[in-house]
């Protein structure tokens, strides 16, 4: 479903250029849940953002469902429809109601009619258990509620892959559970997912594979049971000691 070959992303900036993603190759199969962990600044978010072209990469290849992102004939918007993304800070559209947040892209991008988009939206909002707030503005919702709406908004496009960029990092602790529940439900339904997170519990329970990243490289790629029991890399060992 996702194939990454020798991906490189360099941030120029002032001073020395930083190789945020340094020659990374990996793949995510259909229906697989892959969790990416690592210390902050390790390039995991940047890596994830390269997967739907939000971050333009400098070298290498990203292939989503057979489509090469870097190819000159590829329309990035067509690829992005198939790749849902959930952000750390939710990024709901504050001037639109919850329902409008979920219907907008369906109508503009998928060209669905108002009725179809709305019934689809209501079904998804029911699924993430927030249907009763459909006509509220996002500012009236708690962080956990907003993040669930953001998940529904991404799902409304019927994506083949879902990317989660630290979806619970900006939440108050008591709201983390409600978002993880929705993600677990998705994983059980067979959604292909790439998740950057600090929730080791989620990684242990739901992931088929854990990728450990540091300094722009994937240092370990192992099933969670194996990784959490006995990480091979010293840096992974240090990291786990700090977070667990």
């Amino acid at each position: 479903m996702i194939e990454v070959n020798n991906l490189v992303k360099v941030f120029a900036g002032r001073g020395k250029p930083v190789r945020a993603v340094d020659n990374v190759s990996t793949h995510v199969s259909k229906g697989e849940v892959v969790v990416i962990i690592g210390p902050s600044g390790s390039g995991k978010s940047t890596f994830l953002r390269c997967l739907n072209g939000l971050e333009a990469f400098d070298d290498g290849q990203v292939i989503i469902d057979g489509v090469d992102l870097g190819h000159s004939k590829t329309n990035i918007n067509t690829v992005r429809r198939e790749v849902g993304m959930v952000f750390q800070h939710f990024n709901l559209f504050p001037h639109k109601t919850v329902l409008e947040n979920v219907t907008l892209a369906q109508r503009v991008v998928r060209k669905r009619g108002a009725d179809e988009a709305e019934s689809k939206a209501m079904a998804l909002l029911t699924k993430v258990d927030i249907a009763e707030k459909a006509h509220e503005y996002p500012s009236r919702l708690s962080g956990g509620q907003q993040q669930r709406v953001a998940i529904a908004r991404a799902l409304a496009m019927d994506p083949k892959v879902m990317l989660f960029d630290e979806p619970t990092s900006a939440l108050d602790p008591e709201m983390v559970g409600e978002v993880l529940d929705v993600m677990q439900q998705l994983a059980r339904e067979g959604m292909t997912m790439a998740v950057v997170t600090h929730e080791m519990g989620f990684a242990r329970e739901m992931a088929q594979r854990v990728l450990f990243m540091d300094a722009g490289k994937i240092l370990e790629d192992a099933p969670p049971a194996e990784f959490f029991a006995a990480p091979r890399e010293p840096r992974a060992q240090t990291f786990l000691k700090q977070v667990l």
């Binding site: 739907n52 939000l54 918007n77 067509t78 690829v79 992005r80 429809r81 790749v83 849902g84 993304m85 952000f87 800070h89 990024n91 709901l92 559209f93 504050p94 001037h95 907008l104 892209a105 503009v108 991008v109 953001a150 908004r153 991404a154 496009m157």
Partner: peptide, 30 residues
């Protein structure tokens, strides 16, 4: 307007123009 707004819209497959018209300009105008 926060960059996250544009990113959210683009990640849904909206074009740059659609993003401007539906997401950025209404908020900016306000």
């Amino acid at each position: 307007i926060a960059k996250g707004q544009t990113e959210a819209a683009r990640s849904l497959g909206m074009t740059a123009t659609d993003t401007m018209v539906h997401i950025v300009l209404p908020q900016a105008f306000k």
